[in-house]
Each structure stands twice: as structure tokens, then as C-alpha cells.
Design a binder for these strands. Structure first.
Lengths: 361, 361
DNA sequence: CTGAAAGCGCTTACAG
DNA sequence: CTGAAAGCGCTTACAG
């Protein structure tokens, strides 16, 4: 795509935005009017303005009217940042996403936002591109602004830079991936149950040589903790089906699949599920009777139902993760004591077609 | 999905988070240490601490060492919010998304964030679920915190509540959709060129009865402005191909498609593209020779290439939109004058298969 | 080189 | 009912 832009002059009527910047009705000293300005225009003391603005009792209707008039005339709006400084709170939380490419994060954001809004907070946010240094810089910048709490979808690596902030009273909750080297609450999907459910489903279709895609390679979008948890569920389910798994089966990458010695695979993340499907399509291994491979993805994704065959997944609700994280944070900020909590939200198998057939190879 | 959660007690070693809240090394009066605390511990004046913290010249190495020592001992970190209040800036921008369900917005966010980070800003963010009242509340709350600028993916409806804020000096840039009833900069895809390119592509395949999906219905994820722009491009391209379009062709909804009197359609938004595909799949109108319909989507989406046939789209780069919006905002905040600008980023047709065949009906 | 005072825009605590 | 003073945590402007 070319980087060239079309700049189209607007033909809408009206005044020039920039010229509106100066000379507005309430503009004093080139800035915004303050309570002091309102007070002097209304001929009252600062405190009286404060009373009116805060709806405190003990102001004559007549005085209140004068103050309100001055507020109107000047276009006064209270500076919330100043109020917050004086009050000693910030009513602000910080949200740090390791990547926006993972659609889970927008779900988490929405769930979190419900709680944030309900409690009158505002949210700082930022993303890190899975760069640990950027995460640290962002988190510390938010702490320097004195956020009351932090929600972090962490990038791999140590989060010990948070220890001092947590000691200083900042609440922190990790989402989707657990913290490393710092004791903190975390909310994530029940990955172990997911691994178990996926394998059990495949076993029920007759599969025995079952693989797991999404291991250690550094460029994997899956943290090591997700893989370990899935593997643990996988191992449980294989054992209870009486199957002895070959270690090679759980060290597969998407590109390996066409020649892999398994008849079915579980993919640890939507990006890997899509990569696996691309590799299988390219190898002509998707139609019935083609020697195709059964595929289950961990994590649902947009349009999974439109692919042929529609993709069976182990889904979970990212919105619930965000919502839960928000509530855990609120409780901590309210002073709840106790050791770090790890909350796991339920998963559910959604059968769509890509894993509902017996072994073909 | 059940709403029941698993709460798993952590078995990790270490101290209890909550108990860390109190009695930390630098904890004075139960809060965080201030410059005043540092000053008295170092036996210097407040101003000297300020000098050291800001790296200002004119401090004896010995004095500096004492101050640094006190900072270390107390775990002091400057309160950035207080500094900003005194300085009269906030170094904060606000980003308001109408919905996170539209993946364009995460792209816009990332592009914007590049600029934000480079200029040392922090970002407030929030989403509105396309609720005009929530948008207004959020925007005004951010203005009350005195953000320097606002980036808004607007919900339909008037944005005149911004007029007073813009007069007061807040810079505002709209993204993806244009503002209504307020004069402000905007950055969006070149929708008209998109409509033109899509229709020309279909004409080149031999299609003449070409439809447009995504019109006025209130539940459409497409704003009226997008539809108008696409329609304008459509009209141009049809005219230059010498085709007289039937008005009914441009008033289609996804559900109508199976029986619609057209051989090809352009869908105004990925959600509509997917809806159209679902309707066509359900009607058995996807395989070659089935009387299938050619489909082009406006806006690319994840997994579009995995659908059968892979979906041809008119794509654009949402990251570029965010980046451009950030730069326009920065320039305005730096005092750039001039009428509101409307910047359109280029679009590009990505042929994948769903629109590369002649009429079949 | 160092510091005491005033102030950013508001609220708190107290006095009239 | 109303207001003058002090202070949130920092910086600015000025004096020694």
C-alpha cells in the first residue's frame, strides 16, 4: 500500500478551528478560567465557588445564582486533575496490553472498562509489542502519575520492577498470562481444563496419535506458561484414555503438520491455529478422505465458522477475564488482604467440524 | 459459557501482597515519600531536591550525593501529576473508540501510540459501544482532566458538545468516521476510491448488475458517511463503464443476497462481508457453477484468506490512519493554524478469489 | 551553590 | 451563610 495521502480541503462552512483557540468567551490570560476567576466575577470567595460546584449545602440561593451565572459566562469547568491532586487520589487505573494483535485483549479491555466506568475511574492505556522494556517504562510512567492500580497483559520476562510500586500501594492484576518474579493477582483462562477437554474430544472421535502445536519456539505467540498448562491437561487426558504419548507429538510446529505422525492436533493460540490451517490447506489435507488432520484451536477467533471445515475450538470469554480482573483490582484497592489470587475462567468446547471425524492417516 | 470461576489458591512462595502495602521502607504517614521528605532527610531545601531530580546544574557533587542517598533510602519517585499541574501541561491525550469489535480500532490505536510515545505523552482511553451519550461523558471527563488533545472514532450523532472544549484549546481529530456538527480534523480511508476500485474490478470480470451491501439500516456497523462515499465511488465507476444502475442494487442487506438481482456485491464493512458470506454459504451459493455471487469486502479482516473462496477485499492500513491522526494532532497542539483538514489514506484492492470470476446468474 | 516564598487549581479545616 | 488561610506535591522566579 502506498504511503501517499490524499489531503482533501474541507468545504464545510463555519469558522476556522485554529482561530477558535483564542479569544473564546471565557478565555482569560490565554488559558481556561479557574475557580478564582469565577469567584472574582461573582464577587464571592473561592470557597463559595467550591461549595456551589460541589453542591455543598449552606449557600444562599441568590449567591448560588450569581456563582452559577459567572460559571456560565466564563465557560468554567473544574480542573479535575487539580481536584484529584488535592484529594490525594487519582481515580485512574492503567491498562497495559502486550499486543493489540491478540483479539482477546479488546475483550479484556471491554470487560475491564465496565468495572472502571461503574466506579468512576479513568483508564490510562498502552501497549508494548511484547517488549519487556517498553512494558516497564509504561508501567512506571503510569505509577509516576500515581495510578491507583494496574492491569497488565504481561510480556514474557521478569516483572520485578513492580515490587517497589506494589509496596508503595499500587494494586496490580495480571491478565491472560501470569506474572513472573512478582507476587500479584492474575486472571486467565482455565488452560489445563482446555487441554483436557480438547484431547478428550479427539479421543472420543477415535484419535490416539494426538499432537500439540505451540511450544517453546521464541516467536510463538504463546507464553511458556500457556503451553505448560495445556500440556498438563493433555497429559492428564491422554493418561486417562490409556494412551502413551510420544514426546515428539507435543513438540510440533504448524509448518511440520503435513508430514507429522499424528492424526489430530490441538493448537495453543488462534495465530497458530490459522498457521496450521494454512499449512494443511497448502498440502491439500483438508477435504474428507484426503488424509486430513483433525484440528482444535485453543481460543476462538473471528470467522472461524466461515472456514471449510469450520474450526472447532476451546473457547473462553475474554470479556469475563477483564471484568473479573477489574473486580479483583477494586477489592484490592479497597484494602482486601490475603495472598495473591489466581482466578481461572471456564473454557468450553465449541464443535464446528474440523475435529469431528475419525483418524484418516 | 458458565459464569462460574475457578479460584485457585497460589502456592508460590514469598510474602503476602497485601501485607506489603504497609511498612515499606519509604513509607511515611502511610503514603509515598515526597520531595519534602527527601529534603528533610538529606538536610537540604526542597529546591535543591528539585534541582537534583531534574538534573539542573549548580549542585555540589557532595550535596547531590546526599540527596540521591535520601531518594534511594526513601524509595522516592517524583509525582508526575503534581509536576504537570504546576507546569500547566498534562502531556496526556485521550482516545475514544466507538467499539473494540472493529479490528480497525486496534490498528488505529497502534499507529497513534507510536506518535504518542515518541512525544512523551500518556494516553487515556475508553470505548463507547456506539452510545453517543457515553462518548460525550467520556470526552468531557477527559477534558476535565485537561488532556491536550482527543482522538475520536465517533459514534453517529452530533459532536457539538466538543465546540466549547475546542474553543478552550483542546485539539481534536476524528478517525475512521467524520465529525458531525463540529469543525474538526479527520483521518479516514479513501472510501470513494474504494468504491470505485471495487466496481471497476467487478466490471473487468464481466459483471454489470453490481450491488452494494451496508446501507441505512440502523443496526448497520457502517456510518451513513461511509455508505455515501462508497456509493459515490460506485456511481462514478458504473457511469464510466456505461452501466445504468438500478436503485434497488444499492439498497441490499446481507440476508437479501441469495435472491438478489445482482451477480456481484460490494460489502461496506467486514461484519457485513462476513454476514453476506454466511447467507451465501447457507444458500449453497459458493462453489463454481452454483450460480454463486462475486463478493468484495471493504476493509480486510483476519482469516479472510482462509475462507473458501478466499475473500477479495479493498484494504487500507488502519495503523497509518492512527499514525496520521497522531501527527495531525501534534501539529495542531503545536499551534498549526488553518481550516479543518480531512486526510484520506489510500486503499488497495487485494484479489483473492471471491470476485475473480464472470457472472454466474 | 543554596534556599525561602509564591503559586499551579483545587479542597480541607477552621473561624467569623 | 461566608470567607481567609493552609496545603496537595511539585516548579518558577527571585534573593542571598
Amino acid at each position: 500500500m502506498s504511503n501517499q495521502l490524499h489531503v482533501v480541503a474541507s468545504d464545510a462552512p463555519g469558522r476556522d478551528t485554529a482561530s477558535l483557540r483564542t479569544g473564546g468567551i471565557g478565555t482569560l490570560r490565554g488559558g481556561r478560567p479557574t475557580m478564582k476567576d469565577v469567584a472574582s466575577r461573582a464577587g464571592v470567595a473561592l470557597k463559595t465557588v467550591s461549595r456551589v460546584v460541589n453542591g455543598e449545602p449552606g449557600v444562599t440561593p441568590e449567591t448560588a445564582r450569581r456563582v452559577l451565572g459567572a460559571i456560565e459566562d466564563l465557560g468554567f469547568r473544574r480542573n479535575e486533575s487539580a481536584r484529584l491532586l488535592r484529594t490525594g487520589r487519582t481515580a485512574t487505573l492503567g491498562f497495559i496490553a502486550d499486543t493489540w494483535a491478540d483479539p482477546d485483549l479488546t475483550g479484556v479491555y471491554r470487560g475491564l472498562e465496565d468495572v472502571v466506568r461503574q466506579h468512576g475511574y479513568l483508564l490510562y492505556s498502552g501497549s508494548t509489542d511484547s517488549d519487556a522494556e517498553r512494558e516497564q517504562r509504561l508501567a512506571l510512567a503510569m505509577c509516576a502519575r500515581r495510578v491507583d492500580g494496574l492491569i497488565i497483559a504481561p510480556t514474557p520476562g521478569s516483572h520485578d520492577y513492580l515490587v517497589a510500586e506494589i509496596e508503595a500501594g499500587v494494586a496490580a492484576v495480571f491478565v491472560l498470562r501470569p506474572p513472573e518474579l512478582v507476587r500479584s493477582d492474575a486472571v486467565l483462562p482455565d488452560e489445563r481444563a482446555g487441554g483436557r477437554a480438547a484431547v478428550a474430544h479427539l479421543v472420543a472421535q477415535g484419535h490416539r496419535r494426538i499432537g500439540l502445536v505451540g511450544g517453546p519456539p521464541a516467536d510463538s505467540p504463546v507464553g511458556p506458561s500457556r503451553f505448560r498448562a495445556l500440556l498438563s491437561g493433555y497429559t492428564e487426558a491422554m493418561a486417562s484414555a490409556g494412551i502413551i504419548a510420544d514426546p515428539g507429538w507435543t513438540a510440533l510446529s504448524a509448518a511440520d503438520l503435513p508430514g507429522a505422525p499424528v492424526t489430530a492436533v490441538v493448537c495453543a493460540h488462534p495465530a497458530q491455529t490459522r498457521a496450521a490451517l494454512r499449512a494443511l490447506v497448502r498440502a491439500g489435507l483438508t477435504g474428507p478422505g484426503s488424509g486430513r488432520m483433525a484440528v482444535i484451536g485453543f481460543g476462538d477467533f473471528e470467522a472461524a465458522d466461515l472456514i471449510t471445515p469450520p474450526v472447532t475450538v476451546v473457547g473462553y470469554d475474554p470479556v469475563l477475564i477483564g471484568h473479573t480482573a477489574g473486580e479483583v483490582l477494586i477489592r484490592r484497592m479497597a484494602g482486601e488482604q490475603g495472598p495473591p489470587r489466581r482466578v481461572e475462567v471456564p473454557v468450553r468446547l465449541i464443535a464446528r467440524g474440523s475435529a469431528e471425524f475419525p483418524p484418516e492417516r
